[in-house]
């Protein structure tokens, strides 16, 4: 099994074959992810007659009519801005509440722990559209209706389970000994957390942030019910997409995907900060 038994020249051959397979595998995975995205953008950037025609082209003709329609659409920049505000607020709320809970779940054994965990899971397991009616009634009565904060609270509810469970798994992967070592060196619990644990958990926190952002960004139903003047981009575009003509569907779909991709690109460094403990 081990490499040692294989004589020199053959071993090199095996390695080369292995490297080739490895490379081919990567290429295949990359294609698998990118080709559908490519099709989305081809359709978004093609003339309407090409989008509905057959056979399809595999290269966009850069007819920007459909995309331009969106940029000239009344209130689109305002909606974009609202979406960003809601998403950022969702991120802050869900991590601010979720990370402490995740830490508690990973570091302590206490009565009610399982209960809390199931509670968090339930939150994500229940279809939001059914909750929207009582929530909307509550929001109208309390004045949270049609505010960025109100919608962010609902989105934070959706993102919280992600934040709690992901930070829990990350904190669980960080040995307690590291923290204990810091305590013996005179750090308080808080100091130890901030100086030792937090840097290691950064990828996980970044991951929860990405999820929170993306969840908020793509959520339609609550956004459509709870915002009127302060519509988010998704509520603005997405709910009219499934009844719009095909070329606009694709242009709108692409318009929604793009900002999310830019956001992931911007935070990728933190998301994949794998120099944590591994390179200690």
């Amino acid at each position: 099994m081990s490499d040692v038994t294989i004589p020199g020249p053959r071993r090199e051959e095996v390695n080369r074959a292995g490297r080739f397979l490895f490379g081919a595998g990567i290429a295949l995975l990359v294609l698998w992810v990118l080709v559908p995205i490519w099709f989305l953008f081809v359709n978004a950037l093609s003339a309407p007659s090409e989008v509905t025609g057959f056979p399809k082209r595999f290269w966009p003709s850069f007819d920007l009519a459909s995309v331009r329609f969106f940029w000239n659409f009344q209130g689109v920049t305002n909606a974009l801005w609202n979406s960003i505000k809601v998403a950022v607020l969702t991120m802050i709320l869900s991590i601010g509440m979720g990370a402490p809970a995740g830490y508690a779940l990973s570091r302590f054994d206490f009565p009610g722990k399982e209960f809390f965990r199931v509670l968090v899971i339930m939150t994500r397991a229940f279809p939001l559209p059914l909750l929207a009616l009582p929530l909307a009634v509550m929001f109208i009565r309390t004045g949270l209706d049609d505010t960025v904060l109100g919608l962010a609270l609902v989105h934070a509810m959706l993102a919280l389970p992600f934040a709690v469970l992901i930070t829990f798994s990350l904190f669980s992967g960080i040995p307690v000994e590291l923290e204990e070592a810091a305590w013996t060196l005179g750090c308080t619990r808080l100091q130890a957390f901030v100086k030792v644990v937090l840097p290691l958990a950064l990828p996980g926190i970044a991951a929860s942030a990405v999820f929170a952002f993306v969840i908020s960004w793509n959520e339609v139903f609550a956004a459509a019910v709870l915002t009127i003047e302060n519509r988010t981009l998704t509520a603005f575009l997405l709910q009219s997409l499934n009844v719009s003509p095909l070329p606009l569907k694709f242009a709108g779909g692409a318009a929604l995907v793009l900002p999310a991709l830019i956001f992931i690109f911007a935070v990728r460094k933190y998301l994949f900060a794998m120099w944590g403990i591994a390179n200690r």
Binding site: I26, L29, V30, V33, L34, P36, I37, F39, L40, V210, F211, V214, W217, N218, V220, T234, L238, L241, N242, K249, F250, G253, L256, V257, A260, L261, F263, I264, F265, R268, K269, L271, F272
Partner: peptide
């Protein structure tokens, strides 16, 4: 980092958009 980013791209795509694609 580049490969990870590519793998992570579908994250940003809503289920509605994915259905469309």
């Amino acid at each position: 980092a580049g490969l990870l980013y590519i793998f992570a791209i579908p994250l940003g795509i809503s289920d509605l958009a994915a259905g469309l694609v």
